[in-house]
Amino acid sequence: MPLQVSVVSADQQVWSGEAEMVVARTTEGEIGILAGHTPLLAILASGEVRVTQVGGRKITADAAEGFLSVEHDVVTIVARDAQLTS
């Protein structure tokens, strides 16, 4: 079962879709999220968010300060500022 991922900034939705994996930098360090991950709420550190879509295509976004939540295979990344880089 794929992850449902949303990356949003303060003023817009940057990307939303299904993914196999999400890697993001938190204040505790880099974290990788796969389907079945335990619920989590973390403070997002500025840096790269990497999303591997179902089928292997990779999406990268720069995100600055915010939070990341995981619950029931739904990953939400809310950043003060975020934009796609690839």
Rank of each mutant, 00 (worst) to 15 (best):
M1G: 14
P2K: 05
Q4H: 13
Q4Y: 11
V5N: 00
V5M: 01
V7P: 00
S9M: 04
A10G: 11
A10T: 15
A10Y: 09
D11A: 10
V14L: 04
V14S: 05
S16D: 12
S16A: 15
S16V: 12
S16N: 12
G17M: 02
E18Q: 13
A19N: 01
E20T: 10
M21R: 15
V23K: 03
V23N: 04
T27P: 00
I31K: 03
G32N: 07
G32V: 05
G32A: 11
G36C: 08
G36Q: 07
H37K: 06
P39Q: 06
P39H: 06
L40C: 07
L40Y: 08
A42F: 04
G47T: 06
E48C: 10
E48D: 14
T52P: 01
V54P: 02
V54L: 11
G56L: 09
R57M: 11
R57P: 00
I59F: 05
I59A: 03
I59G: 03
T60H: 15
D62G: 10
G66A: 06
F67P: 01
L68H: 02
S69P: 06
S69I: 08
E71L: 10
H72E: 15
H72T: 12
D73K: 02
D73N: 11
D73M: 02
V74E: 13
A79V: 00
R80C: 09
R80K: 14
R80N: 15
Q83F: 12
L84Q: 06
L84F: 07
L84Y: 06
T85N: 08
T85F: 04
S86Y: 12
